[in-house]
């Protein structure tokens, strides 16, 4: 039994809007193994994005603890958290989340500027990541010159460029047509299988969720059932 890559313990998150407070996550507990591909499903407003943001250290819970990639996130200052994100998690969001004024290559290179890599090494890593997602020939295109699917693949290249252990994807295929979506999903499966990335992907689409190894259901801030579709790639060997 490997140590959990993601451990969520008694996490509560409440949003206050006006006078009302809305409890989005309610003492949620969850463990995710290293090297597994999870899909997170649930009705709209059930707190999926909120949970993903907490796991990624973009937001802090009101109560409870999060242990991700070996860190207790509550113990990190905001600057340390930023540094931890640059090393340990890669994000892919639904809306296309590239910097429009930078080329595909520059977008992928951007997070590498936070690492001690030299300019030449950054170039090498960024090119490698772009080739991996099949966009070696689109490196100098601006996001506007790319299709939605290509943009999302650039975002994946950026998420893996600094070789993080965890990839968090919030509806990465939500805005894509079936064919582009399948390419993105294949890519995530490949990253999980070949590079042992722990992946947590929020999705509404059962077809997309079927690419994962486990499906975690969230409902009204509570953990629902967990479907085990297939064993982890490592275990399946």
């Amino acid at each position: 039994m490997t140590e959990a890559m993601i451990r969520v313990k008694g996490v509560t998150k409440t949003y206050k809007r006006g006078g009302e407070s809305l409890r989005v996550l309610d003492r949620l507990g969850l463990e995710m193994e290293e090297g597994r591909f999870y899909a997170l499903m649930g009705p709209s407003g059930s707190g999926k994005t909120t949970l993903l943001n907490l796991i990624g250290g973009l937001d802090v819970p009101d109560e409870g603890d999060l242990f991700v990639a070996g860190e207790n996130l509550a113990e990190l200052s905001s600057a340390e958290l930023a540094h931890w994100r640059s090393r340990s998690v890669g994000f892919v969001f639904q809306g296309f989340n590239l910097i429009p004024v930078l080329s595909a290559f520059e977008n992928v290179e951007l997070p590498l500027k936070l690492t001690p890599l030299s300019r030449a090494e950054r170039r090498q890593h960024a090119e490698h990541a772009l080739k991996l997602v099949g966009l070696g020939d689109r490196m100098h295109h601006r996001p506007k010159q790319l299709s939605g699917g290509q943009e999302q693949r650039v975002a994946i290249a950026r998420a893996i460029a600094s070789d993080p252990k965890v990839i968090l994807a919030d509806e990465p295929t939500g805005d894509l047509d079936r064919k582009s979506a399948d390419q993105v999903l294949e890519l995530l499966v490949q990253l999980n299988r070949e590079f042992k990335k722990t992946i947590l992907m929020v999705t509404h689409d059962p077809h997309a969720a079927n690419h994962a190894q486990s499906i975690v259901h969230l409902d009204k801030g509570q953990l629902g059932r967990i479907e085990e579709l297939r064993p982890a790639a490592a275990a399946a060997r």
């Binding site: 990624g56 540094h83 809306g95 951007l110 950026r158």
Partner: peptide, 15 residues
């Protein structure tokens, strides 16, 4: 705005 959010998510600090 959105890009600033993205950069922060990537690990760029507030500073």
């Amino acid at each position: 705005t959105v890009e600033i959010g993205i950069q922060k998510a990537l690990g760029f600090t507030d500073g």
